[in-house]
Structures are given as structure tokens and as C-alpha cells.
Amino acid sequence: MKTSATDLEIAIQVDEAARVAHELRLKRDKRDRNGRILKHIFLITVSCVMLYPLFWLLASSLKPENEIFGSLTLWPSEFRFENYTKGWYALPISFTVFYVNSAIVTSLSVIGNLVSCSFAAYAFARLSFTGRSFFFALMMMTLMIPYHVVLIPQYVQFLNLGWVDTYLPLVVPRFLASDAFFIFLMVQFFRQLPRELDEAAMIDGCSPFKIYWAIILPLSLPAMGTAAIFSLIWVWEDFLAPLIYLNDIKSYTVPLALRLFLDQEGQSAYGQMFAMSVLSLVPVVIFFVLFQRLIVRGIATSGMK
């Protein structure tokens, strides 16, 4: 940010460079048309492999119970759409309730994750302070410990707080940056941003929060979008914590409810379970499609400066 004259010159140069680049790109595009078709063929083949299991799941959700295991063909001998209608009400509580519960837990958790983890990541990535590497190492350690062995001490702790059988053990830790994965992810992206941005802003008298809010976050939209997607998917599908902390069936989340269908040793309802599994993917897919745009846009277009 020096004088406007140089800015203008640079702008003209950049413009000129962009024009040349554009022409070059047009040439290259022609050369690449064949390559592109090959690429599509390759991607479509891979897509089929990637999608087969999904078709299988969809097919299984429509099959009669005794066809799911017996036959390898995808096409059901008859379509049992009632797996969906009956499955929704198969449990003592309808799935409407489970979806509402899941929505509450998930939306709060995603907000908590994004806010608290980006705070911590900003501190780790952009601010220097005493004990930074020590705390960073501690944070990484929480990623490494196998979850199952802290389960019981954690349960006792939440029990003493009187939080068992509420959503608090599922939600509160997420407002306290409990998921180090997201901190680390954001740290890696925040560290990529040019240091001059902060310095210039600091000289202009911006507070650290202003820098975080007005510079770091907007420039890290791809990272935040990725974090939002992961966070939503993982919380939505989370099973172990709800299993341990929720007792009342009225408070169950969708993944927990799905586990009520199966009885390894007795009467199961596979068709209905698959039908409900398919439905449980719908909100996540919608969210994915909406939020992945964030990843596409981001800073790439502006070229950062």
C-alpha cells in the first residue's frame, strides 16, 4: 500500500499478463480437448466404482428382507417402498424426533467447532506467545490418544457434573475446541497467509480480533468450508458419544436410532434399517453440495494481493 501511481502500474501489468495468459490458455485448451475427454472417461469409470456401494445400499433398502443377503443382483424382485414409510415409524418414537435431535446437536456442534477451533488456530498460527509449542504439543496429543480408554473417566466426569442424559456432553466440549483435528487443519491454512497482511493491519491500528475477523477468516474460506463440512458430517454420524451419554430414547440421535433396528442374535429389520440409512444421508449430502462452493471460491480467484 504505497502510492497509487505504482498500484496503477502494477494493475496495468497484471492486466496485460492476464490477457496473454488467457490467449495461451485458449491455445492449450484446444490441444487438451482430447486429453479432457480421456479425463472424463477415467473419472466416469472411477465414479461408477465409487457409486456402486451406494446403489447397493439403495437397492437393499427396497428389497424384501430375505433377498438382502441371499442374492447378488442389485435389482429387487419386488420393490418394497414401505420399508421407508414403515421404517420411519418402526421404533417407539418416530424418526421425526430423531432428526430434530440430531439437528440440534449437529448445528450447535458445528458452530462450536468453527468458532472455538478457529480462535485457537489463530492464536497458534498468527500470534506469538509464551508456551506456544508446549500447548501445541498438548493439543496434538489429544489427537493421538485412543478414545476408548478415556471414555470411562470422561463418563464419570460428566456424571459428576450432572450432564449425563442431556446434550451437554456432546455440545459443550465442541465450544471448547475439543476437536484438535480442526485446530490443526486451520493452523496449516492460516500459516499459509502472508505475514505482511497482519503487519500492515497492525500498523493501521487493527486489533488482533479485527485481523482475525476481517483478514484471516475471509481469506481462509476454503479451509473454513472444509472444516464445516467435516464437522457436520462427523457430528451427524457420531455414534459413540450419544450411545454413552443419552439414555432416554426420546433424546436419541439418528445414528443411535439406526442401531435399534439390528439384533445380531434375533429379529432384525434390515430393509427398514437400510431405508432409514439412505434417508439419514440426505441432509449431509445437501449440506455438502451447498458448502463445497466455499472451497471452490476462496482466495484463488483474487491471487491473494
Partner: peptide, 10 residues
Amino acid sequence: PAYVFLLPWL
């Protein structure tokens, strides 16, 4: 400032 940002995590 850093510790304030780190507070939730701490």
C-alpha cells in the same frame, strides 16, 4: 491477546 483467543481451548 493470544491467551484470550486460546481461552476456549485452555
